[in-house]
C-alpha cells in the first residue's frame, strides 16, 4: 500500500523570519488518502509549515511539493487544496452565507447539499456577521467549508478552537463518514491529541521548528511505557533505555521509557516489583516535546 507517489513531499524546508527560525530543515513525505495529524506545541511551526504547503508563504530554504509541483502561484495545484486556518480573518461585513456562496466558485468538488446539512448540524447562523460570531461558530464555518469543499488535499489548522464537545464529535463523525466514502488526504493540526488520536493513520510531530516524529499512529501507540516502583529498582530497569521523562516522589520513581517492552522485560519488571502502565498518545507527545533540548535522534529511537 505504501508504493504510491507521495501527495506531499517536503525536503529540507526551512523558514526564517528575520532572526527567528520557524522551521528548521524539515523533510517528510505523505502518502495520498491518509488522515495525518500534525502535532506540536504552540509556536512549533505547524501553521508555518501549512502555509508553505499552500503557497501562502515562501520557504527560506528547501522545498515543499504537492502533487509533485511547487504550490506557490500554482493554480492547478492550489485548486486541489483547501486550507482551513484558525487564523482566518473574515472581511468586514462578511456573513456566513457570503462565505458559503463564494466557496463553490473555488472548490470544484463543492457539495452544496452536504454544506447545508452541516450548517444544520452545527447550528450555524448564516445571516450574522462572521466577525461577530463566537469563536466556536467561526470554527464551525471553517469546518463546513473544509468538509463540503472535498478538496483532494484538505488541511485543517486547529479546526475546532472554541467548539464544544458535542460539536467536536460531530466533526469527527462527519469527517470519518465522509472520508470513508470519499478518501482524500487530510492534514490536521490540533492540541486535543487524545480526542483525535484514533482518527489518525500517520503522525508528524514538530518541536521548535524541527520534525521530531514522522511515523504511523499505530507504531507510536504503545511505543512507550511508564514504569513505576522504588527509585533504585526503576533506575536499574531503565538503565540503557531511552528515558523520556522521570518523576520522583519520596523513594518512588516513575519513568517513561521509549521503545516497546518485550515479554522478558515484563517478567523482569514484575520480578523487581515494578508496575508497568501504557503511556497515552497525548502523554507521549507531551513527554517528547517537554524535553529542555530537543533530541532529533529520538525519532529513530521510537521508530520501530
Amino acid at each position: 500500500m505504501n508504493t504510491q507517489t507521495p501527495v506531499i513531499q517536503v525536503d529540507g524546508l526551512s523558514r526564517t523570519y528575520r532572526d527567528v527560525a520557524a522551521l528548521k530543515d524539515v523533510s517528510f513525505t505523505l502518502e495520498p488518502n491518509i488522515i495525518c495529524g500534525l502535532l506540536g506545541r504552540n509556536g512549533a511551526g505547524k501553521t508555518t509549515l501549512m502555509r508553505m504547503l499552500t503557497g501562502q508563504d515562501f520557504p527560506s530554504a528547501g522545498s515543499a511539493r504537492v502533487f509533485g509541483q511547487d504550490p506557490v502561484e500554482n493554480s492547478a495545484v492550489l485548486q486541489q487544496m483547501c486550507f482551513i486556518s484558525e487564523s482566518t480573518r473574515y472581511p468586514e461585513g462578511f456573513q456566513a452565507r457570503h462565505v458559503l456562496t463564494g466557496a463553490p466558485w473555488f472548490y470544484a468538488n463543492w457539495d452544496a447539499a452536504f454544506a447545508d446539512e452541516l450548517v444544520g448540524k452545527f447550528r450555524l447562523p448564516l445571516k450574522r456577521e462572521v466577525r461577530k460570531l463566537s469563536r466556536g461558530q467561526q470554527s464551525a464555518l471553517g469546518v463546513i467549508v473544509g468538509l463540503a469543499g472535498r478538496a483532494p488535499v484538505t488541511i485543517f489548522d486547529e479546526p475546532y478552537l472554541g467548539l464544544d464537545a458535542v460539536a467536536r464529535h460531530t466533526f469527527y463523525d462527519t469527517l470519518l463518514a465522509d472520508y470513508a466514502e470519499q478518501p482524500r488526504t487530510i492534514l490536521l493540526s490540533t492540541h486535543l491529541i487524545d480526542e483525535v488520536s484514533n482518527l489518525l493513520e500517520h503522525v508528524l510531530v514538530l518541536d521548535e521548528g524541527r520534525l521530531l516524529l514522522d511515523q504511523s499512529a499505530d507504531s507510536l501507540r504503545g511505543s512507550a511505557s511508564a514504569v513505576a516502583g522504588r527509585a533504585g529498582d526503576v533506575d536499574s530497569f531503565a538503565e540503557g533505555r531511552q528515558v523520556l521523562h522521570r518523576d520522583t516522589l519520596g523513594g518512588l520513581a516513575t519513568v517513561t521509557i521509549s521503545g516497546r517492552l518485550t515479554s522478558a522485560d515484563r517478567v523482569a519488571a514484575a520480578a523487581a516489583n515494578l508496575e508497568i502502565a501504557p503511556v497515552s498518545f497525548q502523554q507521549l507527545i507531551v513527554d517528547l516535546t517537554t524535553q529542555s533540548t530537543p533530541q532529533p535522534s529520538l525519532a529513530s529511537v521510537v521508530y520501530e
Binding site: L78, M81, T88, Y107
Partner: peptide, 13 residues
C-alpha cells in the same frame, strides 16, 4: 481584508 481571505480560498496572487 480580501487578499488574505482569497489566499485562504486557494486563489493565486
Amino acid at each position: 481584508a480580501i487578499f488574505p481571505f482569497a489566499l485562504g480560498f486557494s486563489i493565486t496572487r
